[in-house]
Simulated scan of single mutants.
Amino acid sequence: MNQLLAALDWLLDPARYSGPGGIPMRLAEHLGYTALGVVLAAVVAIPLGLLVGHTGRGRGLAVAASGAARALPTLGLVTLFALLVGIGLLAPTLAFVILAIPSLLAGAYSACEAVDPRTVDAARAQGMTEMQVLTRVELPLGMPLVITGIRAATLQVISTAMLAAYVGNGGLGRFIFLGLKTQDYPQMLAGSLLVIALALVLDGALLLVQALTRPRGAVPAG
């Protein structure tokens, strides 16, 4: 309890909210790392997942690859990439992309698979091309599942983006690693609380987006 109160005192100190090492700057860096990792992963995973879900081809390979990627330790990836490409932003970004791909991929192919086959057949019977079926029928109806994948990927990345500080970058991880180095445990706890709060806020925002994209009468997705 004493450590928690000390962490709250640390967070309430006005001096923590100014300067290049202040909470607002570290928060912006953390959000930037998260957005970069998720967006880059989405560029790869969502189109691939939609293709797999629409055609039904390669699903087993996609599931196996996703499972293998989930099993990879993020800290190990960050360390490996740092050794390969050097200290900087590239190493953690590559790790975050690999971490985000499985959830995005699963959400995308599940979005197509969740659409009633009779609806797809009716669209084809009306003369729609396969691209039109995907973009006008499957994707709009399955959008909540795509957002579910984005939610999961975002939470996974934002909770591990602190590792960017492990290889010389900023973000909220700076508070955690600096606290560990100096045995300033209230600072470590305060950094952890900031990460948790940020994750909850983003999850709530994406949950709202998911609700807004849900077709009327549809059963809520995960």
Rank of each mutant, 00 (worst) to 15 (best):
G88Y: 14
R57A: 00
V39H: 08
G60T: 03
I46W: 14
A64E: 06
V63C: 04
V52Q: 09
L48W: 00
A68W: 01
V44K: 00
V63M: 08
V43T: 04
L40D: 08
G107R: 09
G127T: 03
A64G: 11
G67F: 03
F96D: 10
P102S: 01
T74W: 04
L94D: 15
V115A: 00
A100H: 10
R57Q: 02
T129C: 04
G88S: 07
A91K: 13
Q126F: 12
D121W: 06
V52C: 12
F96S: 12
R124T: 06
V97W: 01
G37Y: 04
Y109S: 14
L94E: 04
G76W: 01
L99S: 07
A125M: 08
P102F: 02
A108V: 09
G49L: 14
V63G: 02
L72G: 04
L51W: 06
L50F: 04
G76P: 01
A108R: 11
L84R: 06
A123L: 06
L50R: 06
L51D: 13
A106D: 10
D121I: 03
G58C: 03
G107W: 13
G56K: 01
A64H: 03
L90F: 13
L72C: 13
L105P: 03
P73Q: 14
G58L: 04
D121L: 11
T74H: 11
T79E: 09
V85Q: 00
L90I: 08
G60P: 15
R124A: 04
L40R: 05
V85F: 07
S66Q: 01
L105N: 14
V78N: 03
P117C: 07
A122F: 02
G37E: 05
G107I: 00
L50E: 01
A82Q: 10
V78E: 15
G37V: 00
A42H: 01
G58H: 02
L75R: 05
R118P: 10
L77T: 07
L83V: 12
A123D: 13
G107S: 07
S66C: 14
P92R: 12
V44N: 01
V85R: 04
T93C: 11
T119P: 13
R70G: 07
L105F: 02
L89H: 11
L40H: 00
A114C: 09
L104I: 10
A71G: 15
E113P: 08
T129H: 00
R59F: 04
C112S: 02
L40T: 05
A68T: 13
G86F: 08
G37D: 05
G53P: 06
A123Y: 14
V115F: 01
G37K: 09
C112Y: 00
V63K: 00
D116P: 05
A64D: 05
V63N: 07
A71S: 14
A106R: 14
A108E: 05
R70A: 15
F81A: 07
T119L: 10
G49D: 06
V97E: 08
A71Q: 04
